[in-house]
């Protein structure tokens, strides 16, 4: 299970890096989204993946339980990531409107007087 997750995280980071190196602002934004997902998966994995265990320690069930903290952490991270990503997408769109281009480079042309 952990091996599978590791492969998925690696795939997400690899794809994300590829997209971040693109010149189109929208693709960079997508790459950042993938990075965020990879980070969330990594945190889940770090809590130790256990299938079918409750997140609370039951007195009769012994000590095997799945870590509830990592789930709380990625919940927070997902919410924050969602907010920032939607803001970034709006910003990309506004920049596209203002500069009539979606390229990260073309923005350099704007001179500050």
């Amino acid at each position: 299970m952990i091996g599978l997750l590791a492969i998925i995280i690696g795939f997400l980071v690899g794809t994300g890096t590829y997209l971040i190196l693109k010149k189109t602002a929208f693709k960079v934004a997508l790459g950042l989204v993938l990075y965020g997902q990879a980070a969330n998966l990594l945190i889940i994995t770090m809590g130790g993946v256990k299938l079918g265990e409750p997140p609370i320690i039951l007195r009769e069930a012994g000590i095997s339980y799945s870590d509830p903290l990592v789930q709380a952490l990625i919940l927070t991270a997902i919410v924050i990531g969602f907010g920032v990503t939607s803001y970034l997408l709006v910003l990309v769109y506004r920049a596209y409107q203002a500069h009539d281009s979606d390229s990260v480079d073309l923005f350099e042309e704007v001179d500050d007087k």
């Binding site: 971040i20 602002a25 960079v28 934004a29 950042l32 990075y35 965020g36 990879a38 980070a39 969330n40 990594l42 945190i43 994995t45 770090m46 952490l73 991270a77 924050i80 920032v84 990503t85 803001y87 970034l88 910003l91 990309v92 506004r94 920049a95 203002a98 500069h99 990260v104 923005f107 350099e108 704007v110």
Partner: peptide
């Protein structure tokens, strides 16, 4: 818009990196 687009992108990247570190 140009300045803040770059700023948001690099900081979002750094925040993700921060999450990796915390994990």
């Amino acid at each position: 818009l140009r300045g803040s687009l770059h700023y948001v992108m690099i900081n979002l990247f750094a925040s993700t990196f921060f999450l990796f570190g915390i994990g």
